Computed example of a mutant assay.
Amino acid sequence: MYKISEFAEVTGLSKETLRYYAEVKLLEPAYIDPVNKYRYYDDGSYFLAILLVKLKGFGFTIQEMIAVMEDESFANLEKLLQQKRMNISLQIENLTTKLEELDEFLESGRENEQ
């Protein structure tokens, strides 16, 4: 079992994030000491925390992460990841178009100076 500070260190999640995740029922401690209220996490919690770190890195919202965690079979995870991938691809296309438009605008300004 890991105390919250140890668990934060090994997962890269802050203690505040872990407390928030517990509050929204996203990642609850495996055990809370009834006397001192210390939170403890186990190896199963570690797997879930690493999954949450990845999902957060992929731009998943809290609501999307909760949906993944509620589906304990992770049956829909691949579908959600494919959707997120498609959204990221569209964002890249949109940003690439904006870059091209910006370059054209800069170039037209240079041509007018000559």
Score class of each variant (00 low, 15 high):
111 E>P: 05
56 K>C: 06
88 I>Y: 07
56 K>I: 02
110 R>L: 01
91 Q>F: 00
13 L>I: 08
6 E>M: 09
106 L>N: 12
11 T>Y: 13
68 V>P: 00
61 T>S: 14
35 V>Y: 15
32 I>W: 01
74 F>W: 09
52 L>P: 02
54 K>M: 15
112 N>H: 07
4 I>W: 03
42 D>N: 15
38 Y>S: 06
78 E>V: 11
88 I>Q: 06
109 G>L: 00
100 E>L: 03
20 Y>M: 13
100 E>I: 05
22 A>W: 03
48 L>P: 02
105 F>T: 14
111 E>W: 11
42 D>A: 13
101 E>F: 05
114 Q>D: 01
89 S>V: 11
42 D>L: 08
38 Y>H: 10
8 A>L: 03
41 Y>C: 07
49 A>L: 08
72 E>I: 12
1 M>Q: 09
26 L>H: 04
2 Y>W: 12
47 F>W: 09
64 E>Q: 11
13 L>N: 02
81 L>R: 08
75 A>E: 15
104 E>R: 12
74 F>Y: 15
65 M>G: 05
90 L>A: 03
20 Y>V: 14
17 T>P: 07
14 S>K: 00
101 E>I: 04
70 E>K: 09
21 Y>Q: 10
23 E>F: 13
49 A>E: 06
53 V>H: 07
86 M>Q: 09
46 Y>C: 03
88 I>K: 04
109 G>F: 00
57 G>I: 01
73 S>M: 13
64 E>Y: 04
83 Q>T: 13
47 F>C: 08
33 D>W: 01
103 D>P: 02
38 Y>W: 09
109 G>W: 00
24 V>M: 10
93 E>V: 01
36 N>M: 04
74 F>E: 08
80 L>I: 05
104 E>L: 03
81 L>A: 14
71 D>V: 07
75 A>C: 14
26 L>I: 06
93 E>K: 03
70 E>T: 03
67 A>P: 00
37 K>M: 00
24 V>L: 06
12 G>R: 12
98 K>Y: 10
29 P>R: 05
52 L>D: 04
83 Q>W: 03
60 F>M: 07
11 T>W: 13
107 E>W: 08
18 L>I: 12
3 K>E: 15
42 D>W: 09
97 T>R: 14
28 E>W: 01
76 N>T: 13
98 K>M: 15
27 L>S: 09
8 A>Y: 04
101 E>V: 02
32 I>S: 01
16 E>F: 02
107 E>N: 14
106 L>R: 13
105 F>A: 10
14 S>W: 00
85 R>H: 11
59 G>F: 01
57 G>A: 00
65 M>T: 05
19 R>I: 12
101 E>K: 11
54 K>R: 15
3 K>T: 15
61 T>V: 05
90 L>R: 12
42 D>Y: 11
105 F>Y: 12
37 K>F: 00
11 T>H: 11
53 V>D: 01
27 L>A: 02
85 R>E: 12
81 L>W: 10
15 K>Y: 02
89 S>Y: 05
77 L>D: 02
110 R>H: 00
96 T>H: 04
93 E>S: 06
32 I>R: 06
30 A>F: 07
39 R>F: 09
30 A>L: 03
20 Y>H: 15
43 D>Q: 15
75 A>I: 14
71 D>Q: 10
51 L>N: 11
69 M>I: 12
96 T>N: 09
65 M>F: 08
19 R>L: 15
53 V>I: 09
12 G>P: 08
22 A>S: 14
40 Y>T: 10
